[in-house]
Amino acid sequence: MNAHRSLTRREWLVLTCAGTLAFFGIWALASLAGLTSRQFLPPPWTVAEKFVELTYQPFSGATLQKHLLSSFGRFGMGFALAVLIGIPLGLILGWFRWADAIVSPLFDALRFVAPIAWVPFAALWFGTGIGGPVLIIFTGAFPPCVINAHRGARYVDQTLIEAARTLGARHWHIITEVLLPASVPSIVAGLRVSAGLGWQSLVGAELIVASSGIGYVLVKGQASISTSIVMSGMIAIGIVGFAIDALLRRIEVQLRRRRGDER
């Protein structure tokens, strides 16, 4: 790996703790220094207190967990849709060059359009249904799924494909039995990025068009001039986002180990 020596367990622990303390320390000092008002930067303990309070006292119609749950539900649907459509599409694009030539330019064009720009259309097409947020999440989560499946399929070892061909495999078989298994590492890496972007897009959508959910909590906290609610919301979003990423990373590592190419 890297030339620099690895840390001992103790060194790592000490430095990690030091880093964490530094972060909270600077935060605490900045808020206490009095150059900032309560609204500007509430101290960490105020935020922690507010966070806990939100878990048992409903704000804007529900407790923090309930809001998180509705957000997560929307995220789940949008992400599932992105995966179910994106991965097969990516594999097909990786296999059929002509499909790639046609679709890729479109894809490259749409990539830069923020999911949040689709919000007016989401309201128009889906109204109040879950379709609206799902559309937004889909636009965020879709590209990485396709791109990574595409890359995985494109760079599959040619000998495998040749072998499958000589055994008489048709397109469909090649895609499902050669490309798919070979692309799994790339796909799983793409899933992590996709999940991250999907979760972020959801929050964006909820800042504008929602009446429940964690993004909604952020807006309502802002309207009540409560920076601690806003920060509690941000922490909650961060925790869930981190958890999703950690879960997918676990899966990625397990898969790598299983396939024996641990880097």
Partner: peptide, 9 residues
């Protein structure tokens, strides 16, 4: 009002 277009309400 945009949501009325899809007859959501």
């Amino acid at each position: 009002i945009a949501a009325s277009a899809s007859k959501s309400w």
